[in-house]
Amino acid sequence: MAEILANSLRFHVHRLPAADAPGEAGATAVFLHGLVVDNLSSFYATLAVPAARDGHDIVLYDLRGHGRTERPPTGYDTATAVQDLTALLGALGLDTRPVTLVGNSYGGTIALRTALARPDLVAGLILIEAPLSGPWIENMLDTLSVAALDLEGSKVPKELASLGARKAARLTATADELLNRTSLIDDIAAGRVFTAEDFAQLRCPVLAVCGEHSELVPGAEELARHAPDCTIRVLPGLGHDVLQGGTDELRRVVLDRLAAAARPQPDAVTV
């Protein structure tokens, strides 16, 4: 179960079966993490284990090239990320009933792109600090390009490894490979931001969570203006790091949303 072949790639997947909750059917939620230095483990203790304890079925996976998933040289555009996710849902048998997608940072961008491309697969979106519109592509490219230059030919990973700082060595080595030996930066540069028309097409309920000081708040506000069913929650005192910096409040918001997703819709009740 840990390794799933989908879209010709071996994905690292971790599923947390819902804890026993007699008489209550939970939601199924698939989590998408952020870029380059992130992987599925950032969700594990923060949201995934608590959600599973609340009776929800949780799927965590490492995005293409990240964590313990295979790292091919190409395919880091959002269209391929959507193909990866839909193939994975199929491989897991989760393409018969729509699921809630929970995306952090760039994972939220992929989640929203998936809801537009395959509305039949997505019951709801929870977007945590997702870059949606505005100059985020340029800003992110600046950051990633500087990091790539710093890492290119650097002996830092080897030096860290020899000092026994294995975790830091792994993290920088992964970042170096993604930034300097895959098409990730070019693929993000070729991406496009969402438009008001995109947001207006969303058919599922959307919850957007932002940090008060984040530069991504205007994008979330634009989403809330145009999407038919969007709630925005701004967490005070935080920037982009809502997941680690505001874990407790974020967890309450996300668990409330999943509980609402799990309740049967009034029009779905049959006699």
Binding site: M1, A2, H14, N39, L40, S41, Y44, L60, R68, G164
Partner: peptide, 17 residues
């Protein structure tokens, strides 16, 4: 062990299996 978080999750998968 200097176990990374992601390695703990991978261990959790093996424990579950």
């Amino acid at each position: 062990l200097a176990l990374e978080s992601i390695e703990f999750v991978a261990l959790a998968e093996l424990l579950r299996q």
